[in-house]
Design a protein around this nucleic acid. Structure first.
Length: 699
DNA sequence: GATCCTCGAGTTCT
DNA sequence: CTCGAGGATC
């Protein structure tokens, strides 16, 4: 395409002060080619070979030269990507070759693929012993279908799909998408007289997040998901707005065409489109028969969440164009292709009610009760709304239709309200003034997000949560004391505080629901067993505000006895590393409260005890000085077990990846942690690698 | 005073 | 897993 002897194809040279028209024409052509090449390398191949500064220099030179010679501005010049006045509306475009819709299967991966393969074979009159059909399997991108028309190699029109027969002319907006070439790269060969490239305009997830951050910062409306964001951006009447939106493109097929020799298979068509300079997704694969389709479907399902963009399924097409023609169409759906969707990660549902829950600290948490909806593989009925501010921000109301998401993570989330579908007569949510459980006043301090019930231990909800925390696995580890039992013990006023638990006998438990001989005996044994604990667990179990597991360990290490901790004043506490004003005050006032001192005394009297606190050995194990973050499910160890092994080897485990993280230990189905680790270039280990490090220290 | 790093607390479903 | 906030650090 380019001739090195002309020079400066990839790098800018200082422009001559003024060029003769003939020289200018040549230089302009060279600049246009160079910029097109760099755009292609950057936006399509993801492998730029010049710095942004060098690119900008080329671009500025082109702008200047065009300003000096306005007569030489070509429609395919990169400077023409942005421009033109806002349109009053989009003109209609008739698709000479209709843009098809593909029939969608939503069955399981096996039955959907087999049914499709069987239909194709039947239509083609194949017998059982005939060889398997070759298919091309592709991703189904979650974006907007468009058709791009090139005449003599130059982009002349871009159109939306519309109803398949007629779409909208969005040429100005299409031109702003840098991944779309303004001129086909056909090498030395003449370009086709006419060719329509079809594909999907979409937005990468990371670009979507960044765009929303920007919109938020500018006080403008944010988008619900990458798809809506791409759709909204493409339908701007003012293309200068579209130009600022980070849109991407994947080509997947052809429309009208003249003056070009069609290859024999769909796969070859895609290869040719790629050579023209379009992005074509790399995951496409030629597979054989139903088994090949199923394998493809499963592979993609596994890596779907790690893709940088959203897909809503996969598409299978008969690879041979001759066979495609034989198969033909039923109404407007081709018989030779089928889309196979994955279960939706987002669904619409309605808010039936907004409950308010009371947590251990008295914090009030609003929770949306939803009409059950199947999303991301489970049926969701609840979704937390976190706090009052969050509800205000999203303006979620009872009766609203909302979008629920259960993406890479597990916990359902209300993404947004569909305002258009809001029924009449709804009213904005208000935090109750009184605790819904105990009726005490609700307090929300200035500048704090949460609202709190002031009832403290008068509030049964807080008492229940405190007991559950006390009995928890990481605290006193009382097996069998779950929420159902605690609920009854508190409601029947058999238990006021943790100390009362140890006064109960097997007979007391027998009166409870779901409690017979065996369970009651087990629970008594569990209570007995829990009496031998450790100081740090005991401190954690008390449920002092701002004192979690880590702080409880620090305190146990530092004071080495409960009496010393209880006697500590504020100044002593603040002197400890990791303890500031807020925590010191919380700890001190907890132990100053006579009722708390009574409970602690009663617990000790009941026989709770712990071995002397060992002085933390300043040993250096194989993992000394290393910090780990865990994500996903490990093949043989539980996460707790892995954490224990790392700590035993003198390593540290934290919850989130930062610059200080030495390694990320990843198992099956890793979450967003893995992506973050990759972006920060933190090395990633699997379980086996970790065990090797513990066995023999890394050199 | 701003920024980074951790910890605490709350949450869903099988 | 995510958010908010406490604590440390520059």
């Amino acid at each position: 395409m380019q001739n090195p002897s002309q020079g400066s194809l990839f790098f800018s040279e200082p422009p001559a002060p003024s060029l003769a028209p003939a020289d200018a024409r040549e230089r302009l052509a060279a600049l246009r080619d160079a910029i097109a090449t760099h755009d292609h390398r950057y936006y399509v191949l993801d492998a730029p070979i010049v710095s942004d500064a060098e690119y900008d220099a080329l671009y500025r030179e082109l702008q200047q030269l065009e300003a000096q010679h306005p007569g030489l501005i070509a429609p395919d010049s990169p400077t023409q990507r942005v421009g033109g006045r806002p349109l009053p509306e989009f003109p209609a475009v008739r698709h000479t070759v209709p843009m098809l819709s593909i029939r969608t299967e939503t069955d399981t991966e096996a039955s959907g693929a087999r049914a499709f393969d069987a239909r194709v074979r039947r239509e083609l009159g194949l017998e059982e012993n005939d060889p398997p059909i070759a298919y091309l399997a592709e991703l189904k991108f979650d974006g907007l279908a468009v058709s791009l028309r090139y005449e003599n190699g130059v982009l002349v029109q871009g159109a939306t799909r519309g109803d398949g027969e007629t779409g909208e002319n969005i040429t100005q907006n299409i031109r702003t998408i840098r991944a779309i070439p303004l001129r086909l790269n056909t090498g030395d060969a003449p370009p086709p007289a006419t060719i329509e490239i079809r594909g999907e305009v979409y937005m990468r997830r990371a670009d979507f997040e960044k765009l929303n951050d920007r919109q938020r910062a500018a006080g403008e409306k944010t988008f619900v998901n990458p798809r809506n964001s791409a759709a909204g951006s493409l339908r701007q009447l003012d293309s200068s707005i579209t130009a600022k939106r980070p849109l991407s493109f994947f080509a997947y097929g052809l429309g009208e065409m003249a003056g070009w020799k069609l290859p024999e298979t769909h796969g070859d068509v895609l290869d040719a489109i790629e050579r023209f300079g379009f992005p074509v997704d790399k995951h496409r694969q030629r597979v054989l028969g139903a088994d090949g389709l199923i394998a493809f479907h499963q592979n993609i399902a596994a890596l779907k969440d790690t893709l940088p963009f959203d897909i809503d399924g996969v598409v299978y097409k008969v690879d041979s164009l001759v066979l495609q023609q034989q198969l033909g169409f039923v109404t407007r759906e081709p018989r030779w292709a089928v889309a196979h969707k994955y279960p939706a990660q987002e669904q619409f549902t309605t808010v039936q009610q907004i409950d308010v829950q009371v947590g251990r600290t008295g914090k009030l948490t609003p929770v949306a009760k939803l009409s059950p909806v199947f999303v991301g593989g489970v049926t969701v009925t609840n979704a937390t709304l976190h706090n009052e501010d969050e509800i205000k921000r999203k303006d979620v109301r009872v009766g609203d239709t909302v979008i629920v998401r259960r993406a890479g993570d597990v916990i359902p989330e209300i993404v947004a309200v569909v305002i258009e579908r809001r029924p009449e007569g709804t009213h904005a949510f208000e935090m109750p003034r009184q605790c819904p459980v105990c009726g005490s006043a609700v307090i929300r301090e200035e500048g704090v997000v949460g609202a709190y019930c002031s009832g403290e231990l008068f509030c049964p909800a807080q008492r229940k949560q405190a007991l559950l925390h006390f009995a928890g696995r990481r605290a006193m580890d009382i097996e069998g004391l779950g929420d159902k039992i605690v609920e009854q013990l508190v409601d029947k006023e058999m238990v006021q505080s943790a100390a009362d638990l140890y006064r109960l006998t097997q007979n007391d438990f027998l009166g409870l629901d779901r409690m017979a001989e065996k369970s009651a005996a087990n629970l008594c044994a569990a209570l007995e067993k829990s009496k031998l604990t450790t100081l740090d667990r005991f401190i954690f179990a008390l449920g002092i505000r701002h004192v979690g597991e880590a702080t409880a360990r620090d305190l146990a290490q530092h004071f080495r006895s409960l009496d010393a901790l209880m006697a500590a004043d504020g100044a002593t506490l603040v002197a400890i590393h990791e303890i500031g004003d807020v925590m010191a005050e919380s700890i001190h006032s907890f132990f100053s409260e006579p009722r708390n001192r009574d409970i602690i005394a009663a617990l000790c009297a009941a026989g709770i005890h712990w071995p002397d606190v060992a002085v933390a050995a300043t040993t250096s194990g194989p993992l000394t000085g290393l910090t780990f973050v865990l994500t996903g499910t490990l093949p043989t160890m539980s996460r707790d077990e892995a954490t224990r092994r790392i700590i035993e080897a003198d390593g540290k485990v934290t919850g989130s990846v930062s610059k200080k993280t030495s390694y990320v230990l990843a198992g099956e189905v890793p979450g967003s942690t893995l992506a973050k680790a990759q972006s920060l270039k933190v090395p990633i280990l699997d379980e086996a690698a970790l065990l090797r490090m513990i066995e023999k220290p890394a050199s």
